[in-house]
Each structure stands twice: as C-alpha cells, then as structure tokens.
C-alpha cells in the first residue's frame, strides 16, 4: 500500500493535466469510475457496518421486519453481555477471549523463536537442498486442516493434550513456523551479509555478529511477522473446535460459533462478540499494512 500511495503522489498531477485535454469524454468517464468504486466500496463495507449497527441495537430492532437501517434504539447491553455473565460473574465468552490471548500469544512467541533463527540460517548459509527444504516447509502450511486434525486428534488423545491449551499452542506454532521462516527469510535477505562479515573481521564470532548487528536491523520485520502469526492464530477455527471442548480451554472462535447452537440465537450478542473479536485484528492489520502482501501470501510474494 505504501507503494500505491507514493505512486499516487508522484504521477498524479501529470495524469490530471493530460487526460481531460486529450479526451473530451474523460471527465464523464472519470465520474462513472468514481461512482462505480463508491458502489463497490459500499457493498464491501456494508456487512461490517451492519455488524457494528446490530451490536448496538435493542433486541426488538435487531429482529425488526423490514430491517431498520437508521431509526433504532442504541444500547450497550450486548457488549455488557459479552463480558459479564447473567449472574454477574465473568461470562464464558470473556474467558474464551482470555484463552485466545494466551494461545495466540504463546504460539506466536514460539513460532518467532523457532522461525527467525532458521530463516537467518537459510538466508546466510549454503544449506544442502535449500530450495527443496524451503518448499517442503511451505507445503506443510497448505495441508487441509480437517485432514491434519484427524491424526492430531488421535495423537493428542494418547498424550492427554485434548482439551488442553498446550495442544493448541503446539499445533498453531507448527502452522506459523513455515510462515515465519518464509516471511523472515525475505527480511534477512534485505540485510547485507557484509555487515556480519565486517563484524567478524573485527573479531566477533558469526553468532555474535548476528546477535549484535543483524538482529537489531530485523526487529521491524520480526514485529510485522509476529503480528501476522498472531492474526492467523487468533482467527483459527478448525483446530480450536475439534481439539477443545470445555469453556475454560476453548478459544474465542469456537465460543462465538457456539452462540448459535440453540433454538434461538441472540444475534445482538453474536454481533457484539464479533466486533470485540475482530477489532484487535483490524488494528493490528492496519499497523502492518506495509507488509500486507507478503503477509497474506505467507511470505511468498514481496513487492
């Protein structure tokens, strides 16, 4: 996105001047394009706005037929319900949010600790069959979760990791390590190896050179990579729903999905819980917007 903003600034004026001069129909077309973009933007954003609106609507407005777009009564009841149980204690949802923080946080830290050194090693050293190893690593990330979860379920049942946060942390780490390695390798490649060579001429060992010279330069990259790993773990649903069951272990995605289990669904609560759940992701995604392309393609595409 940084690219697009820069381009807009540098080439903007030139186009502005030439386009209308050459083509008389240019302005009409431009208006049409803006209108089209606006319509598309409204369509894309409407569900999100509707979700926010539903989360602050009184229940009878939520189920109004036809749907009320503007004149509804505002309430914060649904948000209260997300965090506070009907008996005044902590709600099951708020516990699941806390579990999500623990699981996503721990798995991100682990994936970073394991992935960053590996990425550095792949970038700097002549490793045997490097390309094949890197391909293999990324391939593991493409495995269908539903297929992987069957043997993982049996494996965890043997060692008592079913319905256990550690089990989720381990599987999320395994799913984030390939991403971390691919993403970080790109960042390490951008730091000239000569920095380390120079440090080694000064008498540092390779490890010290990495620690003192390369690692500090990688910090922004590590932060961006960790944010993506955090988002992936936070949003993950399949493993969470099949490997956990009790309220004290369950993460937020299956807990929110569980809200629609019964005969009636409190859609206001679902909306409020979804907003609370999605908000941190959007904030984090905004922080790493410069690396979004690399992030969403698992580090495969860099521009």
């Amino acid at each position: 996105m940084a690219v697009s903003v820069d381009e807009a600034v540098s080439t903007g004026p030139a186009r502005d001047h030439t386009a209308p001069a050459r083509r008389p129909g240019g302005r009409g077309r431009s208006v049409l394009e803006v209108a089209l973009l606006t319509v598309l933007a409204v369509v894309m954003l409407f569900p999100v706005l509707w979700m926010i609106e539903t989360s602050i609507k009184e229940n009878r407005d939520v189920y109004a037929i036809p749907a009320k777009l503007f004149d509804f009564t505002v309430t914060l009841e649904h948000y209260k319900d997300v965090f506070v149980a009907s008996d005044g204690g902590r709600s099951a949802l708020s516990v699941s949010f806390l579990n999500s923080v623990v699981v996503a946080g721990a798995s991100t830290v682990l994936a970073t600790v394991l992935g960053v050194p590996a990425a550095w090693a792949y970038s700097r050293f002549a490793v045997k069959a490097k390309k094949d190893q890197l391909f293999f690593i990324l391939s593991t990330r493409f495995m269908p979760p539903v297929v992987v979860v069957i043997p993982i379920f049996l494996m965890y049942r043997q060692v008592g990791l079913i319905d256990n946060k550690l089990g989720l942390i381990l599987i999320y780490t395994a799913f984030n390590v390939p991403f971390t390695i691919w993403m970080m390798k790109g960042f390490v490649d951008e730091v000239p190896a000569e920095y380390e060579d120079a440090a080694m001429l000064d008498g540092y060992t390779r490890l010290q050179a990495f620690w003192r010279y390369t690692l500090p330069l990688l910090v922004p990259g590590i932060a961006a990579t960790a944010v993506f790993a955090l988002i992936f773990s936070w949003n993950e649903f399949v493993f969470a729903t099949f490997l956990t069951s009790s309220d004290s272990v369950r993460t937020a995605p299956p807990a929110i999905a569980g809200l629609i289990g019964g005969t009636t669904t409190d859609w206001g609560l679902v909306a409020a819980a979804s907003v609370v759940f999605a908000l941190p992701v959007l904030v984090f995604a905004y922080l790493v917007r410069k690396h979004l392309i690399a992030g969403v393609t698992l580090g495969a595409v860099r521009r």
Binding site: M1, S4, V5, E7, A8, L37, L40, A41, M44, L45, P47, V48, W50, M51, I231, W234, N235, E236, F237, P253, P254, I256, A257, L259, I260, V270, A271, S274, F277, A278, V281, L282, A285, Y286, R289, L292, V296
Partner: peptide, 22 residues
C-alpha cells in the same frame, strides 16, 4: 488510493467464524 485500499481490505482480515456467522 491509500484510504480506498485500506477500506476494501477489511473483509479479508476477518475470521471465517465472524464472516460465516454474520
């Protein structure tokens, strides 16, 4: 352009759970 791109990207960052339910 920056604002437009950012707005258009919102759906992609949401969890499939949130998207499906909503």
């Amino acid at each position: 352009r920056g604002v437009l791109t950012t707005l258009f990207l919102v759906p992609m960052m949401l969890s499939p759970v949130v998207v499906g339910l909503f």
